[in-house]
Design a protein around this nucleic acid. Structure first.
Lengths: 211, 211
DNA sequence: AATATATACTAGCAGTGCTAGAATATCAAG
DNA sequence: CTTGATATTCTAGCACTGCTAGTATATATT
């Protein structure tokens, strides 16, 4: 590594300083997101206030607004992390699968366990208001990738991939939400999963029959 | 209508007055709930503040707390109305059906249209925090009835009624939420419905095979 | 060392849910 | 009709929220 002498590479030095600054900013930003996520998971999203986050990163409140437009944007940042991690979890499930049906089963289990183990994260992704765009041109790659990962496991069983993936996704999401809010019996968790898997596989045959 | 004379029926009079009072109270309470519902549907639940409701019913804020423990309880009251009406909509769909499959189709359409036409009402029922109990002994009859209505249309196609109903419900709920928040394509709405119907019907045969 | 610029802070606004205590209306008894 | 007791309603305010204008401070450039 080279060290700057007095007058050599003044331009280089300012660049390096700017870089250090940018790094500092980026670090601080991810500290904000991380703090939001931790507090949300421990005490719920209501406990994630600007004041609390400011206290956590040891800066004043206005600093947060130099990183995010508003509180919703912080939630959105957490959500993007979530989509990224969900995508990883789904692709891991597929990679370990022994066949198409097993991939479907593993992905389903991975999705549900992801959501139920990190309810606040999932809430940021699907329930809380964010400025994220979906099913559009400007959709962020993390979101697209997660959707694609789901599509991969559904495709072998269904002709119309997009429709099937959207519907399958809806089922998983509905199961998560209703279970999380205590509207369906936790005890029947596994039975519902088997039911879904069977339905997806069976729909394959019926769509062959009826066009 | 009878008018009270001087000393005739003092007991009757007080009873009648108390009755009138109670009626007044009940009326005011339903005005609160109605106002909350209207404002929520027009401007979103964030616009439903205690001050706004107080203004709407032309009383001071503390009056609201003599009717409801807190804001969530008002949301819950709206939600109960919603469950009642959803139950009616589902039973209507069943009554007009020409057969089991048609009943399933009509109920599905009724559920989705109910939710998408009154998003704020649906939000109160399923998304916003309330003190309502589900899948328990103290579950309110309105909620039970709506669940039963769904079970009725699912039963002909599935062995394990409760599991099938919960899963079917989850699918409908997921479709509503993902469509409402723009996460799946509105254009594919009908295709997804057909897909769900086909899957439910097909699962019947497969469960005969493997179950 | 002086000036210009970016950065962070203090203090405050308008709004929220909710409530204690004062004021008012409504009632029963004399 | 007047008095005293009882509900009922209101005023005023707390502690909190997201967010921001204006000021102070630290940093970089001449």
């Amino acid at each position: 590594m080279r060290r700057q002498t007095g007058h050599r590479g003044l331009g280089e030095q300012t660049l390096s300083i700017a870089e250090r600054k940018g790094r500092h900013r980026a670090e601080r930003e991810s500290r904000i997101v991380a703090a939001a996520r931790v507090i949300a998971e421990r005490e719920g999203w209501n406990a994630v206030t600007i004041r609390r986050l400011a206290e956590e990163i040891e800066y004043s409140q206005p600093v947060l607004y130099s990183h995010f437009e508003n509180r919703d944007a912080i939630v959105a940042a957490v959500a993007v992390e979530g989509f990224q991690e969900l995508g990883v979890a789904l692709r891991d499930a597929e990679r370990q699968a022994t066949g198409p049906q097993n991939a479907l089963e593993r992905a389903t289990a991975a999705y549900l366990s992801f959501a139920l183990r990190q309810p606040a994260l999932y809430e940021a992704m699907f329930v809380l208001p964010t400025n994220l765009r979906f099913a559009e041109a400007e959709t962020r790659p993390e979101l697209r990738a997660a959707f694609e990962a789901l599509a991969t496991v559904v495709t072998p069983f269904c002709a119309n991939t997009d429709v099937a993936t959207e519907t399958f996704w809806a089922t998983l999401h509905g199961l998560v939400e209703l279970e999380r809010s205590g509207r369906i019996r936790p005890s029947a968790h596994d039975e519902r999963i088997s039911f879904v898997i069977r339905a997806v596989i069976a729909s394959q045959n019926s769509s062959r029959d009826s066009g």
